[in-house]
C-alpha cells in the first residue's frame, strides 16, 4: 500500500498557476461567442435569428451577445455563412444587471472562504465542473477556498441549475440557514436565465427569481477556471467591472 505514496510523489506538481499566471493549456475552456461586426445588416440579423435562446441581439451591422443566455449550442459558429467570432479565455464572471457594483465579502474572508454548493436542477455539467475544482489540476484548497457540508459555516452559496420547483424549498432553507453576511453566486447559464429550460410550471427561470444573486458565472457549463474566477471575485481577489453599455453585456 505504501506504493501509493511514491506514485503520488512521482507525479510531481500538476496544479495550474492560475491566478498568478494565466492558464493556457488547450482544452481548459471552450471559449464563447463575442460581439461581432458583420459586413451587412442581414448577416447580423441572421446571427440573431439562429440563436435559439435569443442570446444574440442584432443592431445594424453589429451583434451583441448576452452570455447569461448563451447555451453554447454553437449554431452561430457552425450554421452561419459568416459565423460569429469566438474568444478564448475564462475570466467571465460578472455582476447581475440589477446590481450597481460588485459587493465582495470583507477582506477577512479573502484567504479563507467556505462554500456551500446547492444543485437546484442542474444537468450535471456545472456540478461536474465545480467538482473538478477539487482535482489536483485546479486544487482550490491552495487558494483558501473550501467546500463545506453545512450552511451554518458557509460564507458563499454557490447555486447551479435553473431552480426546479421541487428544489425551491430546500434551496431557500439552505440560504436561510446561512449567516447573513452570505453571498450568492449563480453558476451557469441555467442558474442565470433558466437556459434551455426557461420558465415553466417546474422551473423558476434562474436563481435570481428565488434569491438575491451577488455574482454570476456565465457558461454552459462554465469551465472550472471560470468558476474559480467567480469565487475569487466573491473573495474580493479579482475585481469586476460593472457593465455599463450594451457592448459590455448589459442587455
Amino acid at each position: 500500500m505504501s506504493f501509493w505514496f511514491w506514485h503520488g510523489l512521482r507525479k510531481g506538481i500538476q496544479t495550474t498557476r492560475y491566478p498568478e499566471r494565466a492558464e493556457n493549456t488547450p482544452g481548459v475552456s471552450p471559449g464563447r461567442p463575442v460581439n461581432t461586426d458583420f459586413s451587412t445588416d442581414e448577416a447580423a440579423q441572421l446571427a440573431a435569428e439562429i440563436c435559439p435562446t435569443d442570446a444574440i441581439v442584432a443592431h445594424g451591422k453589429s451583434t451583441y451577445v448576452n452570455h447569461g443566455k448563451c447555451v453554447h449550442c454553437q449554431l452561430c459558429r457552425y450554421s452561419l455563412r459568416s459565423p460569429m467570432n469566438w474568444e478564448p479565455g475564462y475570466e467571465w464572471s460578472r455582476i447581475p444587471t440589477n446590481q450597481a457594483e460588485a459587493a465582495p465579502l470583507p477582506s477577512a474572508f479573502a484567504k479563507s472562504m467556505h462554500i456551500m454548493v446547492v444543485d437546484a436542477g442542474d444537468c450535471g455539467a456545472c456540478l461536474h465542473e465545480v467538482k473538478q475544482l477539487n482535482n489536483p489540476l485546479y486544487n482550490m484548497h491552495r487558494l483558501g477556498l473550501f467546500l463545506t457540508a453545512t450552511p451554518r459555516t458557509a460564507d458563499v452559496l454557490l447555486v447551479v441549475g435553473p431552480v426546479s420547483e421541487n428544489m425551491r424549498g430546500p434551496l431557500l432553507k439552505t440560504w436561510e440557514a446561512m449567516p447573513t453576511s452570505r453571498k450568492v453566486i449563480a453558476v451557469g447559464t441555467c442558474a442565470i436565465s433558466g437556459g434551455v429550460f426557461g420558465k415553466s410550471f417546474m422551473c423558476a427561470c434562474g436563481v435570481g427569481a428565488v434569491l438575491p444573486v451577488d455574482f454570476e458565472v456565465p457558461g454552459n457549463p462554465p469551465p472550472p477556471l471560470a468558476i474559480l474566477h467567480g469565487l475569487l471575485a466573491v473573495a474580493g481577489r479579482k475585481s469586476l467591472k460593472t457593465p455599463t453599455s450594451i457592448s459590455e453585456g448589459r442587455l
Partner: peptide, 20 residues
Amino acid sequence: EENLLRASCVFARHRYLFGL
C-alpha cells in the same frame, strides 16, 4: 478524467460534447 475533458474540448470544442 480532466485530461479527457480537455481532449474533448480540443477535438470537439466543448468539454461535454454539446452542439455536435
